[in-house]
C-alpha cells in the first residue's frame, strides 16, 4: 500500500510539506481526495435512490415493506452500524492523542461491527431468497436488492480497507503524526453509515399511502 509507505516516509517530516493550515481548504490532499470520491460515490447512490423513487411513485400500488422485511432485526443492524461509527471516531481520537493501543482496539471494534453487519445482511438475504422473494419477481424486490447490495458492497469494501489500516496499526505505523490517515478511512466509513441511515428510512420504514397498499402475492402464497 503506497499510503502506508508514504506514512512511513513521513515519520520525520510534517505531512504534507505545506502546513495544512496554509492550504486553501485547510485539509490534507488525501482528505480532500476522499471527499471528492465520496461526492461521486454519493451520486451513485442518488441514481439508485432516484430510480427507486420513480418506480415507487409510478406504481399504482406498492407492497408494505413492514409486512415483508424484518424491521426490528434491521433496526439492530442500524444500531450496530451506528456503534461502529462511534468506535471509528474514538479510534481517530486515540490516534490524535498518540494512544496506539486504544487506536488498534477501536479500529478492531469498528471492523467487528462491519463484519457483524455483513453477517446480518447475509442472514436476511438467505431468508428472503429461501422464501422465494428473489430480485426478479417485483420492482419492490429489484430496487430493494440493488440498493441494499450496493450498500453491502460498500460495507465489504470498508471492512477490507479498515483491515489494511488495522494491520498497519498492529505494526505501530499510525500515531499522532499521521492521524489524518485514520480520519480518511473514517470519512469513508461514516459515509457508509450515513447512506444506511437514509436507506433504512426510505426502503424499510416508510409504508405506502393507506389506499395504495398492494397485497403482495408472496405473502398470500400466490405467485412468487
Amino acid at each position: 500500500m503506497s499510503a502506508t509507505a508514504a506514512a512511513h516516509h513521513d515519520d520525520h517530516h510534517p505531512d504534507p510539506v505545506v502546513p495544512v493550515d496554509k492550504t486553501p481548504l485547510g485539509v490534507t490532499n488525501g482528505k480532500f481526495a476522499m471527499w471528492l470520491f465520496l461526492c461521486q460515490d454519493c451520486m451513485g447512490f442518488v441514481g439508485l435512490f432516484a430510480a427507486y423513487t420513480a418506480l415507487r411513485v409510478l406504481a399504482p400500488v406498492w407492497p408494505d415493506p413492514n409486512a415483508s422485511l424484518g424491521i426490528v432485526f434491521t433496526a439492530w443492524m442500524t444500531f450496530v452500524l451506528i456503534l461502529s461509527s462511534v468506535s471509528m471516531v474514538l479510534a481517530l481520537d486515540a490516534a490524535q492523542h498518540d494512544k496506539k493501543g486504544a487506536l488498534t482496539f477501536w479500529l478492531g471494534a469498528t471492523i467487528a461491527g462491519g463484519l457483524f453487519f455483513l453477517g446480518g445482511q447475509y442472514y436476511e438475504y438467505s431468508h428472503l431468497i429461501h422464501d422465494g422473494t428473489t430480485p426478479g419477481i417485483h420492482n419492490f424486490w429489484s430496487t430493494f436488492y440493488s440498493l441494499t447490495a450496493f450498500h453491502g458492497l460498500h460495507v465489504l469494501g470498508g471492512v477490507i480497507y479498515m483491515t489494511c489500516v488495522w494491520i498497519g496499526c498492529l505494526k505501530g505505523k499510525y500515531g499522532k503524526h499521521n492521524a489524518s490517515h485514520i480520519e480518511i478511512v473514517g470519512l469513508y466509513w461514516h459515509f457508509v453509515d450515513l447512506v444506511w441511515i437514509l436507506l433504512f428510512t426510505f426502503v424499510y420504514l416508510i409504508p405506502p399511502t393507506p389506499g395504495k397498499v398492494e397485497i403482495a402475492p408472496w405473502l398470500t402464497g400466490g405467485n412468487g
Partner: peptide, 11 residues
C-alpha cells in the same frame, strides 16, 4: 463524525 462542522466553509 465527518467533522464538517469544524471544516472551512469552502470545503
Amino acid at each position: 463524525f465527518m467533522h464538517l462542522r469544524f471544516e472551512r466553509r469552502t470545503l
